[in-house]
Amino acid sequence: MRPEPKSFRYEERDDGVAVITLDRPEKLNALTFEVYAELRDLFAALAHREPVRAVVITGSGRAFCSGGDVHDIIGELFSRDMPGLIEFTRMTCDLVRNIRRLRKPVVAALNGTTAGAGAAIALACDLRVAAAGSKIAFLFVKVGLAGADMGAAHLLPRYVGLAKATELLMLGDAIPAEEAKAIGLHNEVVPADEVLPRALQLAGRLAAGPTFALGVTKELLDEEQHASLHSSLDNEARAQAICMQTRDFREAYDAFVEKRPARFTGR
């Protein structure tokens, strides 16, 4: 069954790319309990959507996502006991978990302000294309929370190194997209009106690729960060042997021999 979220826009394109658009522009696409839950459930459901081979997530208006809504979430949390707070924080972490578990590429099109939980969502994606002049901030500490939220303390050092991650998570300062690209956080920075087209172009290219092999690549990128070299080599040997049994592997060979573009199916 095709997902039908209510709190944001969702589209499946003919090229195999699903587009998620956070759609509360008047609130800089701030997250509510409903948005969190629907995003969590959607990324879980996308694992079973065969027509979808890659995903783009973006925002409407001048922001990608400014984080949790101050009134709709933060204000309400004061009335919760510890089990209620844990229920919420686990839901936010499950969203990141489902993005990383999805064995399909996810591209973040950062059209503007990206802060707090919005920065954590962007961090969980596989590639990030940002608007020139936009900023990103992991500002959890500025509202009295740990900078280690929604996987940020695990993921961010892998992109920018421990020293820079410590700075960003402890100070909570916003940095320009250009600096984020220079330190390895963003993949590309383009003019604002080119962010979504470029993200769709990248996602379309990935959707036309060997989906199974890309899923294995994503899985091993996560697993091998804390594994030894010898364990990683064993994992990669098994993974390649499995990929060699796919139709896509044979198709790549046949296309090379026949001097034509490969037509991957993800099988």
Rank of each mutant, 00 (worst) to 15 (best):
L168G: 06
L171Y: 04
A174I: 08
P176R: 11
P176H: 10
A177I: 12
E179H: 09
A180I: 14
A180C: 13
K181D: 10
A182C: 11
I183C: 04
I183R: 12
L185D: 09
N187C: 05
V189W: 08
V190G: 09
P191Y: 01
A192C: 04
A192Y: 03
D193W: 15
L196C: 06
P197Y: 14
P197E: 09
Q201R: 03
Q201N: 06
L202G: 00
L202H: 07
G204E: 07
R205L: 02
A207Q: 00
A207F: 03
A208Y: 04
G209F: 02
G209V: 01
T211C: 10
T211Q: 13
F212R: 04
L214T: 00
V216C: 03
V216M: 09
K218Y: 12
E219I: 05
L221M: 15
E223V: 12
E224G: 04
H226A: 11
H226N: 08
H226T: 02
H226K: 12
S228Q: 10
H230E: 08
H230N: 09
S231Y: 12
S232V: 09
L233F: 13
L233M: 03
D234F: 10
D234K: 14
N235L: 11
N235G: 02
A237Y: 06
A237S: 03
A239R: 03
Q240K: 15
A241F: 02
M244F: 10
M244H: 06
Q245W: 11
Q245C: 11
Q245A: 14
R247N: 10
F249N: 01
F249C: 01
R250L: 02
A252W: 09
A252Y: 05
A252S: 12
